[in-house]
Computed example of a mutant assay.
Amino acid sequence: MINAEIDRAFPQWMQIGFYVTSIVFNLCLIAQILTVGVAYFNDPGWWTVHIWLVRGYSGLSLVLLGGSLSLPFSGKIRSLATSLPVLLGLQFCSIHLVTPLHLEVLHPLIGFTLFYVSSTLVHRVSREVFNKSDVVTKP
Rank of each mutant, 00 (worst) to 15 (best):
V117M: 03
Q15S: 14
N131P: 00
Y19V: 00
M14C: 14
V105E: 04
W52F: 12
N3Y: 12
H123V: 00
P72L: 05
S126L: 09
P100L: 02
F112E: 02
F18P: 04
R127C: 10
P44S: 13
H102S: 11
A31I: 02
G89D: 05
F25G: 02
A9Y: 14
N26Q: 08
A39H: 04
A31H: 02
V98H: 13
L69V: 06
K132C: 04
E128G: 03
S83F: 14
I30E: 02
Q15D: 04
P44H: 11
F41D: 07
L106R: 01
Q12H: 14
A39F: 05
S94D: 05
L71T: 05
K132E: 11
F25I: 02
L60A: 08
V36F: 08
L64P: 02
G67S: 07
R124Q: 15
L114T: 15
V38P: 00
V136H: 13
L53I: 13
M1H: 11
P11Y: 11
N3I: 14
Q12N: 06
V129I: 07
T35V: 11
V129Y: 08
S70D: 00
R8T: 10
V135Q: 14
H96Q: 14
F25R: 00
T21R: 03
L121N: 06
F73H: 12
G111Y: 02
K132V: 04
S133Q: 10
T113I: 12
H102P: 00
G37L: 09
L114Y: 04
C93P: 00
P72T: 07
H50C: 07
G37I: 04
T137A: 07
V63P: 05
L34T: 09
S94W: 02
Y116S: 05
V117T: 08
N42S: 13
V125M: 05
P85H: 08
T48W: 11
V63D: 03
K138F: 11
S133G: 12
A31R: 01
D43T: 10
Q15P: 02
S22W: 03
L34K: 06
T35S: 15
L87P: 06
N3R: 13
I6R: 13
L121F: 06
Y116C: 02
P139T: 09
V135Y: 10
W47C: 03
E5S: 08
W13K: 12
K76D: 05
R55H: 14
G37Q: 08
L64R: 06
L106I: 02
Y116H: 01
G37C: 01
L97A: 07
I16W: 05
F130Y: 15
S126A: 13
L101C: 00
I2T: 12
E104H: 10
I77A: 08
I95N: 02
V63L: 15
L101I: 09
T113V: 13
N26D: 08
F112S: 01
V135H: 12
P44F: 07
N131L: 10
L34F: 11
S74R: 07
W46I: 01
G111H: 03
P108A: 09
F10M: 10
R127A: 11
A9E: 15
S126I: 00
K138N: 10
L34M: 11
